[in-house]
């Protein structure tokens, strides 16, 4: 009996130990990603120079590069990674579907169409890109929710409505790209998502949502846990399922819309980062949410740095690197699991 109890405790503690270990590792990865993205680039800057530039708000050219180019870009990358990963993690629980991601609730197609309209039809007004994309994302998410509403929301109806609306908006995107094929280049970059030339205004666009919606996301961990037991059980436990689902979807929409409106249609992070985190840390949202956020930061900052330095002076959009490196790694995790 005594030894039995001891082994039980060991089991419990080893699980906690493992989860803390994974979290610590993701934290290191995120930190490494941030440093890596600051240090590497067209010119390599030593960590001491970086620290000096940040502390003294850079005066020399090196400081200028760090302060005006590298630092905001790294921060935008980190926030975008965090937002998209959190959004995907929330949606996977709310929609009870492993394929749920910010794409499914129309954020990408809405932001995509609005962004393309600005880039292609009003190329001189590109300062409208971010707000237009943000509003487009909110509108298309709202339309999908309304279409799926029938005395309540069933996740499968949201997913089907999302597919239909995305296809509809996608046809708009495609026709604009074909009709204005001479202006496609900027639009293409927007469609795959990239961090090139992202600066302080972009940081301040996304930051309030990262803080606000991010905080709400972390507070909702126990609601997400209960929701993943199924609607009937959640209701039996006193959860107001419909209300919870609306609020959580809204949080996910804000997180994703703020990210996508700043960097374009960055796929992959919202779908695969939460899955990778889940495979390593389990499905308890109290651990899964911080793990997804940290892994999102690490993945985006590291991928963006690679995208910058691999083919200098040419720069690839970060989305391409993420898919190229991340998809095989994800498949490896998946096979190892089963």
């Amino acid at each position: 009996m005594q030894s039995n109890r001891w082994s039980l405790n060991r089991n419990l503690y080893s699980r906690l130990f493992w989860r803390s270990g994974v979290l610590a590792f993701f934290m290191l990865l995120a930190f490494f990603g941030l440093v890596f993205s600051l240090v590497k680039g067209a010119v390599n800057i030593s960590p001491e120079d970086i620290v000096r530039a940040i502390c003294y708000n850079g005066g020399d050219p090196m400081g200028q590069i760090v302060w005006n180019i590298r630092l905001p870009r790294s921060i935008v990358g980190a926030l975008v990674g965090m937002n998209l990963a959190l959004s995907g993690a929330i949606l996977q629980a709310v929609m009870k579907n492993p394929l749920a991601d910010p794409h499914i609730i129309g954020v990408s197609s809405g932001a995509g169409l609005a962004g393309i309209i600005v880039l292609v039809l009003f190329p001189t007004m590109d300062y409208l890109l971010t707000p237009a994309a943000f509003i487009g994302a909110l509108i298309s998410a709202g339309i999908i929710y309304l279409l799926a509403w029938k005395g309540g929301i069933r996740p499968i109806r949201i997913i089907l409505a999302g597919v239909a609306v995305s296809a509809f908006l996608g046809s708009g995107i495609s026709s604009l790209l074909i009709l204005y094929s001479d202006r496609v280049h900027g639009a293409l970059v927007w469609m795959v998502g990239g961090l090139a030339a992202r600066s302080w205004p972009h940081v301040f666009t996304i930051l309030p949502y990262s803080i606000g919606a991010g905080l709400l996301a972390f507070l909702s961990a126990s609601y997400l846990n209960v929701l993943s037991l199924g609607d009937e059980v959640s209701r039996g436990l006193g959860l107001r399922v419909e209300l919870t689902r609306i609020v959580l979807t809204a949080i996910a929409v804000l997180l994703a819309a703020s990210a996508v409106s700043v960097v374009g249609l960055l796929g992959f992070v919202g779908l695969i980062v939460p899955h990778a985190a889940r495979l390593l840390i389990g499905s308890d949202y109290r651990f899964l949410l911080p793990a997804s956020a940290l892994l999102g930061i690490g993945v985006v900052t590291i991928s963006d740095t690679l995208a910058r330095i691999l083919f200098t002076p040419l720069e690839l959009p970060v989305g391409i690197i993420m898919a190229f490196v991340g998809a095989p790694f994800f498949l490896y995790l998946l096979r190892r699991e089963s």
Partner: peptide, 23 residues
Amino acid sequence: SANKLARQIAVLHQKTQAPGDLS
């Protein structure tokens, strides 16, 4: 209220499904 009801009654439904790794 939803909470108050859940403190008075509990239900075991016919089909239940928990996330795989839940203890």
